[in-house]
């Protein structure tokens, strides 16, 4: 698997899109510092970008890579390799190369502008960790969709739809249902709904780091207890891991049964 991972990774690392992605984050980082030289502010703005963009890029790259490497996959399938090995290797290759572009691209400007001396180092690390998690989650989801649809247009369409659902529609429905049922105690529902969307979960995780917890706590004891403790942080991280593991496992299961 490590060999497959290595080759997928190297293949992507050489692709033009990886550079585009990398330079995008590099430029973003520098622009943020240019506009407000305060590291904390830059972290907040960066959060807005990362929460939306890493899932989108993960989705698009995942689908694109899967379809464009189809023949290569077939070549590998004819070799004495386990299917799991092949797909896990490719999946990790894509996810790692995207995460690398993110971490290095954003990291360079932050290091240059002195993140190590700043108190925001932990916020920043959380941000990158969450960005990497989102990449892994959305690459896995898009691999699943690409495996399910032989037709590229369909696969692409459904992947974008999935992103749109997770990034926007879910929150819209969530907000609407909270407003409709606002006579009932909502905090548990809200908490639950957050855990079931990795984008919301990541957003909350970063907001917690940025000390918005008190603002959330304003609304009720459940939020306060959950977000005020290390338990909330731990549970969020566990849920994010589950969000990587389940789509990953589903993807491998699907790959086992698929005809090429």
């Amino acid at each position: 698997m490590l060999k497959i991972l290595k080759y997928s990774f190297m293949d992507l690392m050489r692709s033009r899109w990886s550079y585009v992605y990398f330079f995008f984050y590099l430029v973003l980082g520098f622009v943020l510092f240019f506009l407000n030289s305060d590291v904390t502010k830059a972290v907040i703005t960066l959060m807005n970008v990362i929460i939306v963009l890493t899932p989108l890029i993960g989705t698009i790259f995942g689908v694109m890579y899967f379809y464009s490497s189809r023949e290569f996959t077939e070549l590998l399938l004819a070799q004495p390799l386990k299917r799991k090995t092949i797909f896990a290797g490719q999946y990790l290759g894509v996810s790692l190369s995207l995460s690398m572009s993110l971490v290095v691209g954003v990291g360079i400007p932050f290091v240059i502008y002195g993140i190590f001396g700043s108190a925001a180092i932990w916020d920043f690390s959380t941000l990158l960790l969450v960005g990497a998690f989102l990449t892994f989650i959305f690459v896995a989801l898009s691999f699943n969709l690409a495996l399910a649809f032989k037709d590229r247009i369909k696969g692409f369409g459904f992947s974008i739809l999935m992103w749109l659902f997770m990034a926007v529609i879910y929150d819209g429905l969530f907000l609407l249902s909270m407003m409709i049922f606002d006579d009932y105690p909502l905090d548990k529902l809200a908490l639950g709904a957050t855990l079931f969307n990795p984008i919301d979960l990541s957003r909350i995780l970063i907001l917690l780091k940025l000390d918005i917890s008190a603002l959330l706590g304003y609304t009720g004891a459940v939020f306060k207890n959950f977000f005020g403790t290390g338990l909330g942080l731990l549970l969020s991280l566990i849920m994010l891991s589950v969000w990587v593991l389940i789509p990953g496992a589903l993807m491998l299961r699907q790959a086992e049964k698929k005809d090429f």
């Binding site: 807005n48 929150d171 907000l175 909270m178 407003m179 919301d200 909350i204 603002l215 609304t219």
Partner: peptide, 15 residues
Amino acid sequence: KTPETIILLRSLFVD
């Protein structure tokens, strides 16, 4: 109106 919705702060939908 619904204080619990604060949990959606800074989400894309809210933007």
